[in-house]
């Protein structure tokens, strides 16, 4: 992976972007809010084919991005603006 396609700026060199965090695969649907919070904060279900992440185009347009990647090949599957959720 050498570039990331920013929806606003086009394909840019990777060093313009900063990775912020991985989104846990699926929040558990239990009634226990504290267990949910724990799982969201600490636990990850490893998926070698898909990683959903928050990035920011820090040295560019500074937009927050929702990025879907394949961590085994480095292929970028989709990039869109992050909206509606707090980063």
């Amino acid at each position: 992976m050498r570039q990331l396609p920013c929806p606003f700026c086009g394909a840019r060199e990777l060093r313009e972007f900063v990775f912020h965090k991985t989104l846990p695969a699926a929040a558990s649907a239990t009634a226990d809010a504290s267990a949910d919070e724990f799982a969201r904060t600490y636990l990850r279900v490893a998926d070698p084919q898909l990683s959903v992440e928050h990035w920011q185009h820090v040295h560019g347009c500074r937009a927050w991005l929702l990025v879907r990647r394949n961590p085994s090949t480095g292929a970028v599957l989709a990039v869109q603006m992050l909206s509606g959720t707090a980063p």
Partner: peptide
């Protein structure tokens, strides 16, 4: 490198 990966490639920067 700063993001999850299994590629064992390593980014240039």
């Amino acid at each position: 490198d700063g993001f999850p990966s299994y590629t064992r490639e390593g980014v240039w920067h």
